[in-house]
């Protein structure tokens, strides 16, 4: 137990949080753009999974990280566009389409993996390239701080930079204005000639890129190969994070870090012989807990407000009685 506490107060723990949070931050930035455009999509799990495989195959066969990157993004964007085609163009139910895509992603990636490598479980037989870690000169030499700030995977830095970028896109750019307007009052946007469908497709496209980066982080940075269903619910946790973050970039970042931290804690407990099945439950349990706590606090606020009103009107009653 002491070793776990010691770990929690160490720089390794902060590094672990960043490692665990990276895919959540990347994916949730995409989710929140889509959500702001008024589309509820829960197919991010499949987008991440497709990109995780696409990146591995692309880079392994071309021996070029860039080609791998493009393959991964192309696949996740393809899934995002499929979602858009079924939901926005054909007006199919968004939940059913998401469900279908997630199932397709899970089975389809195994099928393609088998077709290319002959293996079903993982891609260890082929040599995937990895995203490099970045050591920042000067900063890496600062004691403690250098360890925290420097030496992360390049995608971790991309994830952190993506937060202000998404903030700028959403709140300060014409595109963001359109995304928010379409999400809030589609008719208003259409009446001025802005196509709601086009705007939503653009949001889905950008989200596909983010989900792709998140997926490739899993197979080309977090671990070094693709394994079956390796996203393990992170696409859903990212959705929960942006939901709790009220669809805004900064709060969503914070919630992604919270879920990343719970992941890191779970790993830390592995050191003291807890059953691994119990620990694997931890991040998901913390997601449910987070959703519950936020829901309860909203309820609490409403009750408090109602109680205040009751008090006020009683006071008014009493005054009237005297007067």
């Amino acid at each position: 137990m002491e070793s776990v506490l010691g770990y929690i107060f160490s720089t390794e723990f902060i590094i672990a949080i960043l490692r665990m949070s990276t895919p959540l931050i990347l994916c949730s930035m995409g989710v929140l753009l889509v959500r702001n455009s008024g589309v509820v999509c829960i197919a991010f799990e499949s987008m991440m999974l497709a990109a995780a495989l696409g990146g591995v195959l692309g880079s392994a066969y071309s021996r070029s990280l860039l080609v791998g990157l493009l393959c991964g993004i192309a696949l996740s964007v393809l899934f995002a566009m499929l979602f858009g085609f079924f939901v926005l163009v054909l007006k199919a139910n968004n939940m059913l389409v998401s469900l279908a895509l997630n199932t397709l992603g899970s089975g389809g990636t195994v099928f393609i993996l088998f077709a290319f490598t002959g293996d079903r479980g993982s891609s260890t037989s082929i040599q995937s390239l990895q995203f490099p870690t970045v050591n920042i000169p000067v900063i890496q030499d600062i004691p403690i701080l250098g360890n925290i700030l420097s030496g992360h995977n390049i995608l971790t830095y991309v994830a952190l930079v993506s937060v202000p970028v998404v903030y700028l896109i959403l709140m300060k750019s014409p595109l963001g204005l359109r995304i928010r307007a379409v999400g809030e009052n589609k008719n208003a946007a259409e009446s001025l000639g802005t196509s709601a469908m086009k705007t939503q497709f653009v949001a889905l496209f950008i989200a596909g890129i983010f989900a792709g980066l998140a997926g490739m982080y899993m197979s080309m940075a977090y671990v070094s190969a693709f394994t079956q269903d390796m996203i393990a619910g992170r696409g859903f946790i990212a959705i929960a994070a942006q939901n709790l973050g009220g669809f805004m970039p900064i709060p969503t970042l914070i919630w992604s870090l919270v879920f990343g931290a719970s992941n890191a804690i779970a790993n830390a407990f592995q050191a003291i012989n807890m059953p691994p099945e119990f620990l694997q439950m931890f991040p998901y349990f913390s997601t449910v807990l987070g959703l519950m706590l936020v829901g309860m606090s909203i309820n609490q606020q409403e009750k408090k407000k109602a109680a205040e009103i009751e008090e006020k009107s009683k006071l008014a009653d009493a005054c009237e009685g005297n007067g």
Binding site: L177, R180, N187, A188, A189, L192, G193, T194
Partner: peptide, 21 residues
């Protein structure tokens, strides 16, 4: 329109220039 084509959470200026920002 009879039902206003405005986005309630945005400002007047943002609604004004919407589509030609």
């Amino acid at each position: 329109h009879q039902h206003f084509m405005l986005v309630p959470s945005l400002t007047v200026a943002e609604n004004m220039v919407f589509g030609m920002e």
